[in-house]
Design a protein around this nucleic acid. Structure first.
Lengths: 154, 154
DNA sequence: TGTCCAATATAGTTTCGCTATGTGACCGCT
DNA sequence: AGCGGTCACATAGCGAAACTATATTGGACA
């Protein structure tokens, strides 16, 4: 990459052209194998709930989903017993979604599946590459936060 | 990140749990803004064609798509005049897909849109973070290649 | 207490990708 | 030459995921 000499504009260009298509391909490649019980979106939502109950709109925001999408998602997860809906005592409009014991368990299972998948596929990467990958994920996380902090992309 | 002290297993775990959900969120966030003429998959395919004509199965492999998906994709793109189908002279079964002038142009436009989008959204990242992001994309690309070289995930 | 806003739910649609299968071209063998 | 098998692409049909628009219900306050 010859980092260091890379200008800011060049870096933006490179990312703009490559990042999303690569992420798409990676997702498709990884999702091909295996019948996971949880989709990445479901897993993401349950992960968020690990930190405690959340309202629907909150979830929509942090997961970068539209509100009706979250309602449906929660419907399905509730149907499977992975989350619970609870009306707020103080505000009758608000629904608090919380992780059930079963949901917590399933999340562990799903994560274990992802881990196993990566363990298998990542064998050929060097330690350095692997660490870069971890760093990459961190960076993506920061970028997501930055975008959300700006209140969407606008 | 305290890189260096990170064990291989820890790195795998971190990546397994965070990478795909983050990539999903990022995609959704970035795709919200704007009416792009080209989807990321379409843009990816056209980008590949920049290097010259490709057959359908080749495209399916490099884009990590199923063959019928590529056929449909090419249908649409051809309908919009962005690519051309051409029967191979030496092998009547083979279709060569090539980029049209219009397709090349549209790809430029789409890339410019992505660049503008990132330019706007990336303002708040430091130079270092931006370079990390570029490196992250590189790493993702290598991971994709590794996965493809293994002939899928299996 | 009527009006307006906020939080969630419902309806309907779109987009994207997949599996299974069909059709026609090439190749090896007899 | 002809037959069967395989390869490359196309067609058909399906399912998942997420969207927009809109309805519904609760709260807040003049």
């Amino acid at each position: 990459m010859t980092a260091g000499t890379t200008s800011r504009a060049d870096a933006i260009d490179a990312v703009a052209v490559t990042l999303l298509p690569r992420a798409s391909r990676l997702t498709r490649l990884l999702l091909r194998a295996g019948d996971r019980a949880l989709s990445r979106t479901e897993a993401g939502l349950l992960s968020t709930l690990l930190d405690g109950p959340r309202r629907i709109t909150e979830l929509a925001e942090t997961e970068a989903l539209a509100q009706p999408t979250v309602t449906q998602l929660v419907d399905r997860l509730q149907g499977r017993g992975l989350v619970a809906r609870e009306r707020s005592a103080t505000d009758g409009r608000v629904v608090l979604v919380s992780l059930s014991a079963e949901g917590r368990e399933q999340l562990q299972v799903a994560r274990a599946q992802y881990r196993a998948l990566l363990r298998d596929t990542v064998q050929e990467l060097s330690d350095e590459e692997l660490n870069q990958l971890a760093a990459a994920s961190e960076t993506l996380g920061r970028l997501v936060e930055t975008l959300q902090a700006r209140g969407g992309v606008a």
